[in-house]
């Protein structure tokens, strides 16, 4: 069961990571093309900034799942780090429960947006907005999965001290 969850999560993480890298690249190229087109060729692509903005929204929702996996969401965890293990585990579960509830609300609340997004078109691309709104439930689902995995993985050491990149230049 645990192994299955872990494997599923790792596959999804690879997919999400690839998607996030692609989205950032698209964002960057869209903005650079917009500048180049406008300044060098005096030709503007109306859709470029919309493509970039929509990529950004998807990037944040999927990237937040990756950040969860990497423990990059900022928390004030001085106090729980001092708790004895049983209490720390309780805290870990409570936090997870709170996060899952919020993510559930986030996903659930997207329903009316997606319903409207079937006929609501984006201003420039004239793309049905539901394709952008889908990032909320999908991002929430992926984050939930990463969260469950991290609870299992952190069961014996719920609040490890934060790790810095020891030396980014050496790490690469």
């Amino acid at each position: 069961m645990f192994a299955l969850l872990e494997r599923l999560c790792l596959v999804l993480r690879a997919v999400a990571s690839a998607a996030v890298i692609l989205l950032f690249t698209v964002m960057m190229i869209a903005v650079l093309v917009q500048i180049g087109g406008r300044y060098v060729f005096n030709y503007s692509i109306a859709a470029a900034s919309e493509i970039a903005t929509f990529s950004q929204i998807w990037l944040v929702l999927l990237g937040s799942g990756v950040a969860l996996a990497r423990g990059q969401h900022v928390a004030i965890d001085m106090l729980p780090a001092k708790l004895p293990l049983p209490l720390a585990r309780v805290a870990l579960i409570m936090i997870a429960a709170v996060i899952v509830s919020f993510l559930w609300v986030l996903a659930y609340g997207t329903q009316p947006l997606i319903k409207m997004g079937a006929f609501q078109l984006s201003p420039a691309l004239q793309l049905p907005m539901k394709y952008v709104y889908f990032c909320l439930p999908i991002g929430a689902a992926y984050m939930t999965l990463e969260l469950l995995l991290s609870v299992i993985q952190r069961w014996d050491n719920p609040f490890p001290p934060p790790e810095a990149d020891p030396d980014p230049e050496e790490a690469i």
Binding site: Q34, R38, N42, Y43, S44, A46, A48, S49, E50, A124
Partner: peptide, 10 residues
């Protein structure tokens, strides 16, 4: 159509 270059800016 006015001859300008319509440009998107936030």
């Amino acid at each position: 159509a006015f001859g300008a270059n319509a440009t998107p800016i936030a």
